Amino acid sequence: TFELKGKVGKVVKIAEDHYLVEVEGDKWIAYSDEKLSLGDRVMVVDVDGLKLKVKRIP
Rank of each mutant, 00 (worst) to 15 (best):
Ile14Phe: 09
Val8Phe: 05
Arg41Asp: 14
Asp17Phe: 11
Val44Tyr: 02
Ala30Arg: 00
Val47Leu: 06
Gly6Phe: 02
Lys53Ser: 09
Lys35Pro: 06
Ala15Phe: 09
Val12Pro: 00
Ile57His: 06
Lys27Ala: 06
Asp33Met: 14
Ile29Cys: 06
Pro58Leu: 06
Leu4Asp: 06
Val23Pro: 00
Ser37Val: 13
Asp33Thr: 12
Glu16Tyr: 10
Phe2Gln: 15
Lys7Arg: 04
Thr1Arg: 11
Leu4Lys: 03
Val44Ser: 01
Val54Asn: 00
Lys51Arg: 12
Ser32His: 10
Lys5Ser: 05
Gly6Leu: 01
Val11Asn: 03
Trp28Val: 02
Leu38Ala: 09
Gly6Met: 01
Met43Thr: 12
Val45Trp: 12
Val11Pro: 02
Met43Ser: 04
Gly25His: 10
Val45His: 07
Lys27Met: 10
Val47Cys: 04
Leu36Val: 09
Gly6Ile: 00
Lys13Trp: 12
Leu52Arg: 01
Asp17Ile: 13
Trp28Thr: 02
Val44Pro: 01
Ile57Ala: 07
Glu34Ser: 08
Lys7Asp: 02
Glu16Asp: 05
Leu36Met: 11
Val11Arg: 00
Glu22Tyr: 08
Thr1Phe: 15
Lys35Val: 05
Val42Phe: 06
Lys27Asn: 05
Gly39Phe: 12
Val8Asn: 06
Glu3Pro: 15
Met43Asp: 06
Tyr31Cys: 05
Asp26Gly: 15
Asp40Arg: 05
Lys27Thr: 10
Ile57Glu: 14
Val44Lys: 00
Lys55His: 11
Lys10Asp: 13
Asp40Gly: 09
Val8Cys: 13
Val12Ile: 08
Leu4Val: 12
Thr1Tyr: 15
Gly25Arg: 08
His18Ala: 11
Lys10Val: 11
Gly39Trp: 14
Thr1Ser: 15
Val12Ala: 15
Trp28Ser: 02
Val12Arg: 13
Val8Ser: 09
Asp33Ser: 14
Asp26Val: 08
Val8Ile: 10
His18Cys: 08
Gly39Asp: 14
Asp40Ile: 10
Glu24Gly: 04
Asp40Thr: 09
Ile57Val: 06
Leu38Ser: 06
Tyr19Thr: 13
Glu22Leu: 08
Thr1Cys: 15
Val21Leu: 05
Tyr31Ser: 06
Ile29Pro: 05
Glu22His: 07
Gly9Arg: 00
Ala15Ser: 08
Lys5Glu: 15
Val47Lys: 03
Leu36Lys: 01
